[in-house]
Design a protein around this nucleic acid. Structure first.
Lengths: 197, 197
DNA sequence: CTGTCCTGACCGACCAGTCGGTACGCTTGT
DNA sequence: ACAAGCGTACCGACTGGTCGGTCAGGACAG
């Protein structure tokens, strides 16, 4: 650990955390490597010891978010119980975790196009798999006759995730609504728009 | 008109058009002024003759989009007829115009934070007024008992416009669905999630 | 002595914006 | 009729500064 500088948290994690915060605040292109390392209390050399490039740092952020969301969705989708309940739970959860990690969400949808072409493709593919898993849940309910099927499941998923991704532009933690409240409302809206009753 | 160069379209309009295309493709910060003027077939001097700065060019794009959308919403909202029909028509229209101007939409939600603080505030305020007009339409239906009122109109509007703004990330004009088709589906989803029947 | 972690000066590329100058048509005085 | 004067449109080399990334080496643990 070389010289005991300031914090106990490992340098690598501090760099990712500060980068996330700054990218969310100013955007990827408007944040210099110098600002990131200054915020983390190290120098450029340290950053380039752990990451190959500024892009690599961004890639790390995407990887973390995708891993977590995919894991959680799988958990909810593969649970027992009626499909409507599983979908409602999964929808609520994605909203709550998005609100709990708003900075990640802001970076995700604002800076995706700054990734290098290959990394961009990888991220898109993983994101696509995630959407497909969600879509299958909707389609399952449609086949079972629980959901209306006059609107393609693909559209429904695009509609719902658009709403979720945009939370970063208007949701404020100090506002009148908590994450779980927003989650319940969003899940209600989704389920209701699919409702057959 | 000075020297007859190449195209007939005025230089100013060509600059805005090419800037929109490039900003949508690469993002504001990753597009150099040099690239914009090269695409428009002029030089930097010409651009700085018409615009005060690169930011000013971005501002112009926002102004154009906001003016058009506000105007159209007012038209649909102030029309005659039941509130459910007016809301459906307005919702369909905003989707169709978004799809018809996808580049504008991409620039809008990806590069907003690159505007100077004052301009940013102005744009946010105008955007806010737009949302409020839409929210009032929802609230009107709720008061009239046509829409369910157990979810705040504010949330419903945030939900719907999230979906619309995110069209830019996944809608493709060559895909299987046309703008009006997406518009109808989106408006159906909105109305259905508000449905009382 | 060796590998890991980290420093900070430095480099070449690039970028937004500037500025002195040019081309050309419209107005005005004679 | 004509030239002088002027304003608008545009050119493109240049500048001051910033940025991502490099590198030679120092400090410390095992």
């Amino acid at each position: 650990m070389a010289r005991g500088t300031t914090t106990e948290e490992p340098v690598r994690q501090r760099l990712v955390a500060e980068a996330t915060r700054l990218f969310a605040e100013r955007g990827f292109e408007s944040t210099s490597v110098q600002e990131i390392v200054a915020a983390a209390g190290v120098t450029k050399g340290a950053m380039y010891h752990y990451f190959a490039s500024k892009d690599d740092l961004l890639h790390e952020i995407y990887g973390r978010v995708l891993r977590m969301q995919t894991e959680r969705l799988t958990m909810f989708a593969d649970a027992a119980g009626p499909v409507a309940e599983r979908l409602h739970a999964a929808a609520t959860d994605v909203v709550v975790t998005t609100v709990d990690n708003l900075d990640d969400s802001k970076v995700f949808f604002r800076s995706m196009h700054q990734l290098s072409p290959e990394v961009y493709k990888t991220v898109r593919a993983e994101r696509r798999r995630y959407h497909e898993r969600f879509r299958d849940l909707v389609a399952e309910g449609q086949r079972a006759g629980v959901f209306r099927d006059d609107i393609p499941a693909e559209i429904v998923v695009g509609f719902f995730f658009g709403s979720v991704h945009h939370l970063g532009t208007w949701y404020h933690p100090d506002g009148p609504l908590s994450g779980p409240e927003i989650g319940r409302h969003f899940a209600d809206l989704l389920l209701r728009s699919l409702g057959n009753a």
